[in-house]
Amino acid sequence: MSSPRFAQITWPLFRVVIGLLFACHGLASLFGLLGGSRGTGEPIPVGVWPNWYAALIQLCCGLLVMIGLFTRPAAILASGSMAYAYFVVHQPEGLMPIQNGGVTPALYAWTFLIIAAFGAGPWSVDELISSRRAKAPEPAPRVAEPVAERA
């Protein structure tokens, strides 16, 4: 079996799973679902900097990456937010992610950077839009009508 054949299946599945997992973090923090913020069962109060905004990014970007819509910009934003979380929250506690509890943000940051580099791939709204644009016929050029002569 060739690896490009597997890539057509595994890449979209990878993107969907990563997007779903990231969106679940946002659901937990914004709405108290799935155990709530940090397992407390409670949501983060609206507008609390930076946690509430990070949760909003997690939910929105996770859903966009999952369905493959605006995948590259969503993945860049998600990657940046996780890099921020790592360097501001975790890295001051220790140099290595295993020491400072920052394994999850580090993995998400790199994963979303890879998704941004490779794009949505097949089975995505981005692919559907681009394939429809490619199939759309070019409009015929307009020909100017002759002006009637005045007598």
Rank of each mutant, 00 (worst) to 15 (best):
P137D: 13
Q99M: 12
V143M: 07
A75V: 03
A75R: 08
T40F: 10
C24P: 00
A116H: 12
G68H: 08
M96C: 01
A120W: 00
I129A: 07
A54N: 14
N51A: 13
P141E: 14
G39Q: 14
A78Q: 03
F112D: 13
P146L: 06
R72P: 05
P45C: 08
F112K: 13
V103C: 04
G36T: 11
H90R: 07
A54G: 15
E138M: 11
A55Q: 02
G119I: 08
L128G: 07
P73H: 06
A109K: 00
L69E: 01
R72E: 01
V125I: 04
T71I: 00
R72K: 15
L64I: 02
R72S: 06
W52Y: 15
A75K: 05
N100G: 04
G19K: 02
F87M: 07
V17S: 10
A106N: 00
V48G: 01
C24F: 13
A136E: 11
A75L: 10
A7G: 00
I114V: 15
L20Y: 13
V16S: 01
S29K: 15
A120N: 01
Y53P: 06
P12H: 10
C60E: 03
D126G: 09
L113V: 09
A55Y: 07
L128M: 12
R142I: 11
S130K: 12
T104P: 02
E42G: 01
L69N: 01
S2N: 11
C61G: 08
T111C: 07
A136P: 00
T40W: 14
G102W: 01
S130Q: 13
G80C: 12
L63A: 06
L33C: 05
S130H: 12
G36E: 11
P105D: 02
P97R: 04
M96N: 11
A23W: 14
L69V: 02
C61P: 00
S131G: 00
M82T: 00
L33K: 12
R72I: 09
V89I: 12
I44K: 04
P4W: 02
A151N: 09
E127M: 08
S79A: 14
E149H: 06
E145R: 14
L33A: 15
G47D: 03
V89A: 14
V17G: 06
G32N: 08
A75G: 02
G19Y: 00
V46T: 10
A140F: 11
N51Q: 12
A151R: 10
L107S: 09
P139H: 02
W110A: 15
I57A: 15
P137Y: 05
V143S: 10
D126L: 08
G36I: 11
A78R: 05
S131C: 02
F14A: 14
M96Y: 11
G19L: 03
P137E: 13
I44S: 01
T104A: 12
A144Y: 04
I115M: 12
R15W: 09
Q58E: 15
G101T: 10
